[in-house]
Design a protein around this nucleic acid. Structure first.
Lengths: 125, 125
DNA sequence: TTACACATATGTAAATATCATATAGTATAA
DNA sequence: TTATACTATATGATATTTACATATGTGTAA
């Protein structure tokens, strides 16, 4: 039983994609270098991903360890300084393989949809 | 770094869907009652899911706890007895909500695909 | 000087997934 | 009759990922 909404799902995010934020972050960064706090907004606006703040920062540091992004502190006149992230070549490569991996996932989901429609023709997706 | 194949993914199953086996199992059971060992084959053949054996049995027991399936031992002349699973009404209801949850997930993936194609028009999915 | 938005970060626990191993019944070939 | 393989279910231990809570500090505006 889900603690947050009381529904029958054990975890809130049932059917969610493992580590989906990572390709999302890389795609955003491949347009413009950015920092954590800003990415948090962009992930929700542009990617439909509500990310836990703490998780986001930890993910960014982990991605830096993996060599997919690089960071530098940048001065901020009107507020605390920011750690600005840039995507690397390795990061772009990972993004591409992640996308094809997700493409396979997508096919798997649709395979389930097809079987579901076959078994329950009257049900909506 | 993935231990099994040496690729850059931290886990082998990058981009996989959280607890995807569960709706798959329920869909299979809604056609015919079945047992673990047989489901293992069917999940691979019909759903493209390679499931860890131990994980499968634990998942089935967990699903029974949740009231989505029921089990009974059935005699097997040509081998060890089998625990045969049947889907319940609650199980079918969960299947339906899981499918609509996955439908949302699918939209989220495609949103990423669209942005990816926009940013990298020459790349293949 | 208080409150609030911005900004980054860590501690801890829960949920899931992975890998290895245990146990036992039946069949069959040496 | 022994060894081997296949069928069948199950648990122990660990790793990974996610979720929730909390800490800390800067700048701005009331």
């Amino acid at each position: 039983m889900c603690k947050t909404c009381g529904c029958s799902f054990r975890s809130r995010n049932f059917g969610g994609i493992e580590r989906f934020v990572e390709p999302c972050i890389l795609l955003l960064l491949s347009k413009n270098p950015s920092h954590g706090y800003s990415l948090m907004d962009d992930l929700e606006k542009h990617c439909g991903e509500k990310v836990d703040v703490g998780n986001l920062y930890r993910t960014l540091r982990r991605m830096e360890m993996d060599g997919w992004v690089e960071s530098d502190w940048s001065k901020n006149e009107s507020g605390p300084d920011r750690r600005t992230y840039t995507v690397t070549e390795d990061g772009l490569e990972f993004l591409k393989s992640a996308v094809s991996s997700l493409s396979r996932t997508d096919k798997t989901i649709h395979r389930l949809f097809d079987r579901f429609k076959e078994t329950f023709p009257s049900e909506q997706l």
